[in-house]
Design a binder for these strands. Structure first.
Lengths: 252, 252
DNA sequence: TGCCAATACTAACCTGCGTTATGATGAATT
DNA sequence: AATTCATCATAACGCAGGTTAGTATTGGCA
């Protein structure tokens, strides 16, 4: 089933069998994409959205000199650009990182769902807000963490998200990224990413080598990156309450 | 009219008179909030959302030591926590920065809109995706810009957003923030924010003093912060095509 | 009018990360 | 087997911004 991973394991919003069937029925086409190919360009109107079945995709903004900031990484089960349905035009580019398989859903079909299935519409809406919640976690990462923390946070997040899609066993997963990709996610240079990865290796937290991530100390890595999976809205918290959150409060 | 600024000036999604009337009709209460007060706490279920009528609010995530990263600033006309309607629980805190006036809309009423008014629902959805687009611009800001650029970008964005609400004349607006607020937005220390503001002053780009922002060189400030308002989905681009965007493309 | 707390401002010092450069490794192509 | 190109790795050096430690303003309130 092509839509099987969509919203899987997300608190209170997984799809009913009927909703899955409806989504399957509005898929107009399944495509295979080659690695490093651009799919959507910022500013161009689009009339369909893309459900990622397999592989990795990303969304990004380039600066004036062409230096890139990734604003999202999408994994199997993600509705990559569903937000293009209400927005009509995107504010960023979308591309594949690895080879990928995607299902195409025309916006006209989403109009039908919107007009006739309020509950499914609310779940689609929910899924775009999940992406926004991830954006916020990334803002925290870039704003408050040092380079080691940023990479630790990203790898911890990706581990959990891949677990949902059955692509990580909880400590080990394939991630076909270059060190430069990690740099563009974490807002650091590729030279420094290399230093950071060495440090994570030396601290026995995590090894990332030849496209395999192996986390030796899941909890230690999460601690180093101040990773708290609350923003992923999981049905089952993988950390339970290990990372007891003490927070000061400046406001009354 | 309480909802008059909601989605005002946003490309293709401003509300019809009838839709405005419906939104007005579902407001259960108007409240006045004191400055620096917390409104929603992360993780607690909420049953209504908040439309900001006047003042400034923010959304933020604190780190382990209580250091804060703002993930959004909301101005008059913003539906501060509409995303809580599909999400049910938030992944971050919400608070006022200044004194504020807000309109409360119960989620039960939004259920009715969702069930019976697909077009208005799509616009509400759109407005939450606008927030996500702003998140992405903030990611770009934190990931790719230096401190001066970050502050320049933030002030340029805020200028445009306040113009939409009629609270900036295009160069001058009231912003009741402390330098520490700016720091927590831009991911820098308050000491450095002070240095940055001095530099912006010395470079004749912008003066921020006693809660008034005066932009002396709107285009220069935008350039310094690589600010391109595309992500705000405006009906009328305030910069037209002054900032001609040359971008390299790494991908085919 | 004077007091107090919050905010603004500045300087001196230090460090994490950027920059530049150069080489090693490995995978694809001939 | 040789060539090429992308990726990984490491070292040397510099600087933007953090840290610490103060002083100066400001504004609210008694």
């Amino acid at each position: 089933m092509l839509t099987e991973n969509f919203l899987k394991g997300r608190r209170g919003s997984s799809l009913s069998l009927e909703e899955h069937a409806v989504l399957e029925s509005v898929i107009s086409e399944v495509r295979t994409l080659s690695p490093r190919s651009m799919i959507v360009r910022a500013g161009e109107p689009i009339y369909h959205s893309t459900l990622l079945i397999d592989g990795f995709m990303c969304r990004y903004v380039d600066d004036r000199e062409g230096l890139r900031q990734l604003v999202a990484v999408q994994v199997a089960g993600d509705f990559v650009d569903l937000h293009a349905y209400p927005l009509k035009v995107l504010d960023h580019d979308v591309a594949t990182l690895t080879a990928a398989t995607v299902a195409i859903i025309p916006h006209g079909k989403l109009d039908q769902i919107n007009a006739t299935m309020p509950e499914l519409t609310r779940k689609l809406w929910f899924s775009t807000l999940l992406d926004a919640a991830v954006h916020r976690a990334w803002l925290f990462r870039l704003g408050r963490l040092d380079a080691v923390g940023r990479v630790a946070h990203f790898l911890s997040e990706t581990n959990v998200r891949l677990q949902l899609a059955g692509l990580s066993d909880g400590t080990r997963f394939a991630l076909g990224f270059t060190q430069t990709d990690i740099s563009e996610i974490c807002g650091i240079t590729n030279v420094h990413t290399n230093r950071v990865l060495r440090q994570l290796r030396e601290e026995q937290l995590c090894v990332f080598r030849s496209s395999i991530v192996e986390i030796q100390d899941v909890e230690g890595l999460a601690r180093r990156g101040q990773f708290d999976p609350g923003y992923l809205y999981l049905s089952h918290d993988p950390f339970k309450d290990t990372a007891a959150h003490q927070k000061q409060n400046r406001f009354a």
